[in-house]
Design a protein around this nucleic acid. Structure first.
Lengths: 136, 136
DNA sequence: CTTTGTGCAAACCGTTTGCATAGTT
DNA sequence: AACTATGCAAACGGTTTGCACAAAG
C-alpha cells in the first residue's frame, strides 16, 4: 500500500505547483524550505515511487549514458524499451512540425527531435518464445 | 587546429562502422581491441572534440539530470538551449506519426516522444539586450 | 619547438542503496 | 504490531579534470 507521508505529500505538491520541470535536486531545495530535515535520498525514493504509481511523470530520455552516432545527417531514432539499444529510422524530422507554433509557445523554436520507442525484433522474439519465463 | 591522432582516427572509425549507437564505454571497449593502452578519458575527450567539430553526433537529450513532471497527461516539451529549462507545449503527440512505420523499421513501435528545442523569452531578451557581451 | 593530445588517477555529479530508527495504517 | 518510509552516509556509474609526459604539426 502506498502511504501518504508528509514528505511524499509535499514533494507531490511542490512538483505540481512547479511550472518548470524540476530536477530531483531542485525539488529537494524547494521541499527543504518546508521540511528542512528531509534527505535527498527520500526525494529520490519518492520520485521513483510516485512515478511508478503513475502520479507523476519522468521526462528522462532512455538510459543514463549518452550515446553517439557516426552519422550526422538528421534522422529519427527508435529505442528498444527492453534492451535499450538505439537504431536509426529512415525518416527525416519534418520541418512542418516547427511551423505555426507561435500560438503554442513563447519560445523561439530552433529544432525538434523525435524518438520512437518500441521493442526490437530480438527482444520481441524472446518474449514470444515458448521458453520465456521458464528458466530457473 | 584539430590533429588527427591514431586514437582519434580509430574512435571515429569504430563509431562510423558501428550500426548501434554506442555509449562512450562501448566505444572504449571496441577501440581497446586495437589500441590496448588507450584510456577512457581519451575516449571521452575525443567524443567531445569530434562532436564539437561536427564529425559525429550525440544522441543525448538535454542535460544530465532527469526532470520530473507533475502533469501526467501526454504533451510535448520545449527545452531552452541556453538555460536548459523545460516547459510544456500545448500539443498532444499525434498518433498518426506511429502509423505506417513498418517499412521503416523492424521494431514493434509502442510510442514516441517529441521534444522541441528553442530559446526561452528571457534568454532571448538577454541576447538581444544592448548590454549583452559588454560585461567582464 | 610549440601546441595539442595522451594516460593515469583523482574528483565530480546525479543517483542508488544499506542500515537503524521513526512513522503510518 | 506489522510494515513502509525516513535520514544519513557510503557506494555507485558515468563523466570530467589536473598533471606530467608524448606526439603532431
Amino acid at each position: 500500500m502506498l502511504r501518504m507521508t508528509k514528505q511524499r505529500a509535499i514533494i507531490l505538491e511542490e512538483l505540481r505547483k512547479a511550472r518548470t520541470h524540476p530536477t530531483a535536486d531542485e525539488i529537494y531545495s524547494r521541499v527543504r524550505l518546508r521540511l528542512p530535515r528531509i534527505s535527498l535520498g527520500t526525494v529520490y525514493r519518492n520520485l521513483d515511487t510516485l512515478s511508478k504509481a503513475g502520479l507523476i511523470a519522468r521526462l528522462q530520455c532512455g538510459g543514463v549514458a549518452k550515446r553517439y552516432d557516426g552519422c550526422i545527417e538528421s534522422h529519427c531514432h527508435v529505442r528498444c524499451e527492453v534492451c535499450g539499444r538505439v537504431e536509426d529510422m529512415d525518416i527525416a524530422p519534418s520541418a512542418d512540425l516547427e511551423r505555426n507554433l507561435s500560438d503554442k509557445t513563447s519560445y523561439r523554436i530552433t529544432g525538434h527531435r523525435i524518438e520512437f520507442t518500441g521493442v526490437c525484433p530480438e527482444c520481441d522474439n524472446a518474449v514470444a518464445s515458448p521458453n520465456y519465463g521458464k528458466g530457473g
